[in-house]
Design a protein around this nucleic acid. Structure first.
Length: 305
DNA sequence: CATGGTCAAGTGGCA
DNA sequence: TGCCACTTGACCATG
C-alpha cells in the first residue's frame, strides 16, 4: 500500500519566506480576472505548474508516490480553453515534464474535481459546465502523457440526489456517455458522508452495474453515510470494481477529535487511526488538513512507510 | 509585511 | 434563511 496526500504541501515551505512559498493554487478574484484577463491567468498557471513539478520532486525525496493534483492550477479554466493562453506552448511542455517525471518515478497522480462538478445535475447548464470541467481535467492528463486508465483517476462525487437517488444516478449514467472517451476511461466515483446520499452499495447498484465506473472508497465518509454494509463489506465491494488497476481510497479522521464544536464530518489535521486494509492491497490519499505533515506523522505513529 | 474583509461555481444539512 | 462544509483557503486593499 502506498499512501499520499492531496494538492498542497505544507512541509515544502517550512523555512521559506512567504514570498518564496511553493504553491500550486495561485488564483485571483473575479475583479482581477476581468481586469487582467488571459495573460495573467497564463502567468499564474505557469507559476503553478512550475511549482507542481517542484512538489513532485519533493514528494520523491520524501518517498511519497501517491499525489492528488490540485484542480486550481489553471485559474478560471472554466472561462477559456488552454490553447487561448499566451503561454500555451510553455504550459504544454511543463505538463509533459510533470507527466514524464511522474511516470519515471512511478508517482500515481489523480484528480478530484469538487462540489461544483455535478454531472447528474437537474440543471442543463450545470451538466454542460461539469462535462467541460471533467474533460479539461482529462485534457491536462493527456498533455502530461498519462495513460487514460484508472491508475490516474479523475474521481468525483455524484453531488446530487434530486429528485431521488435513483433518478439522479440514472442521469449520471446517461450523461457519462457525453464525456470525452479518455475522460470516461479515467472517471471514478466516491461514496458520500451523508445519510441521504450514496453508499458504496448504492453506487454499485445504481451506477457501477450499468457503466462499470470503479468506486473510490472513503473510510471517513463511510462512517457518516448510509449504513447498509459493514466497513469491510463496503471496502471489499468498492475494491472489486477496479479490475486489474490497484484501487485508490481516501482516509481521514473527524475534526471533532481535535475540536468538539466542529462538525463530525469535517476533516481533522491528522489521521488518528491505523488504516484498516482487511488484507487488501490498495493506495490511499490522506485527506488531512496538515497534508504531507500529517502523512509524516502517520508514518511515525504507526511505524509504516 | 501583517491583517481582515471578501471571495466563481452546486448541493444539502443544520442552527 | 443564511451559514457551513465539501477535495484545498487564498486574494487583495489597507495600514
Amino acid at each position: 500500500m502506498a499512501i499520499g496526500y492531496c494538492c498542497i504541501s505544507n512541509g515544502i515551505n517550512i523555512g521559506r519566506r512567504p514570498k518564496d512559498f511553493i504553491k500550486v493554487n495561485r488564483g485571483m478574484i473575479r475583479k482581477t480576472f476581468l481586469e487582467k484577463g488571459l495573460p495573467y491567468a497564463s502567468e499564474l498557471s505557469l507559476l503553478n505548474l512550475i511549482d507542481c513539478l517542484e512538489v513532485l520532486k519533493y514528494n520523491v525525496k520524501n518517498k511519497i508516490f501517491v499525489y492528488r493534483l490540485s484542480s486550481d492550477m489553471i485559474p478560471w479554466f472554466s472561462e477559456f480553453n488552454l490553447e487561448e493562453l499566451p503561454d500555451y506552448t510553455k504550459i504544454c511542455s511543463l505538463l509533459k515534464k510533470i507527466g514524464d517525471y511522474a511516470k519515471t518515478n512511478t508517482i500515481r497522480l489523480s484528480a478530484h474535481p469538487g462540489p461544483y462538478t455535478v454531472l447528474a445535475s437537474e440543471t442543463e447548464s450545470v451538466v454542460e459546465k461539469s462535462i467541460d470541467d471533467l474533460n479539461k481535467h482529462s485534457q491536462m492528463m493527456d498533455l502530461m502523457g498519462l495513460d487514460a486508465t484508472r491508475y490516474y483517476p479523475i474521481n468525483i462525487h455524484i453531488n446530487t440526489t434530486q429528485p431521488t437517488r435513483e433518478e439522479a444516478a440514472e442521469r449520471f449514467t446517461e450523461n457519462f456517455f457525453l464525456l470525452d472517451e479518455n475522460t470516461r476511461k479515467r472517471l471514478t466515483i466516491e461514496n458520500d458522508d451523508k445519510l441521504s446520499q450514496y453508499s458504496v452499495k448504492m453506487l454499485y447498484e445504481f451506477i457501477y452495474k450499468q457503466i462499470k465506473v470503479p468506486i473510490c472508497f472513503d473510510q471517513h465518509h463511510y462512517k457518516y453515510g448510509p449504513q447498509d454494509q459493514t466497513m469491510e463489506e463496503a471496502l471489499k465491494l468498492a475494491y472489486s470494481t477496479w479490475g486489474s488497476i490497484k484501487p485508490l481510497t481516501h482516509m481521514s479522521s473527524s475534526r471533532r477529535i481535535e475540536d468538539v464544536s466542529s462538525k463530525e464530518t469535517a476533516h481533522a489535521d491528522f489521521l488518528y487511526e491505523k488504516i484498516e486494509t482487511f488484507g487488501l492491497d490498495f493506495d490511499t490519499d490522506l485527506e488531512c488538513k496538515e497534508k504531507d505533515i500529517a502523512l509524516f506523522k502517520y508514518r511515525k505513529d504507526y511505524g509504516v512507510l
